[in-house]
């Protein structure tokens, strides 16, 4: 691995330290904003534990930053279907996240059957399948099946949305 890429990777990990630090400060500020009179029955109060957690996060943030600057590196997690020899494939991730967000935006308005179809079809596409028609049919079938399965089997009424009255 070239020194340039290691350097960049190291810098990316500083972002993790930043996130930890920010989370720590957030927890601290939030706890600080709580107003609680001292109570005999609850000497610890709702602030103590957040303070401890905030402290832990900030200390970890600082130590992690030092560790990264000194050349420490977290090892990415492996797995049976994971090949770490190539870098993260953003061309897969971003469309995948897009399909997910589309589902969030659509689910209450258009209903699960439509948004679920969009989610599954979009994900399959993002993951590289090119059998559009077959994938589309599977997506619709899956969404319909889960809609009725949840309604009839579990008594959970997923939103019907635009298809209200048809389903």
């Amino acid at each position: 691995m070239s020194s340039l890429t290691t350097g960049l990777k190291g810098r990316a990990e500083l972002g993790v330290a930043l996130l930890l630090g920010a989370a720590g400060v957030l927890v601290f500020l939030d706890a600080n904003g709580l107003v609680t009179p001292y109570s005999q029955s609850d000497p610890v109060g709702p602030k103590t534990v957040p303070y401890i957690v905030a402290g832990l996060l900030v200390v970890c943030a600082v130590l992690l930053a030092i560790n990264v600057i000194r050349g420490g590196q977290g090892e990415a997690e492996g797995g049976e279907d994971i090949d770490l020899t190539h870098p993260a494939d953003w061309k897969t991730i971003l469309p995948l996240a897009g399909a997910f967000i589309l589902n969030i935006l659509l689910i209450d308005w258009a209903g699960w059957v439509i948004s679920g179809t969009v989610l599954f079809w979009g994900s399959v596409l993002a993951l590289g399948s090119r059998r559009y028609v077959r994938d589309g049919l599977i997506s619709v079938a899956l969404s319909l099946l889960t809609f009725y399965g949840f309604y009839l089997g579990l008594g959970i009424a997923l939103p019907a949305g635009l298809l209200e009255g048809i389903l």
Partner: peptide, 11 residues
């Protein structure tokens, strides 16, 4: 799922 999707084994 996102993590695996980013690093799919190719062979």
């Amino acid at each position: 799922a996102l993590w695996v999707a980013a690093h799919l084994r190719r062979t």
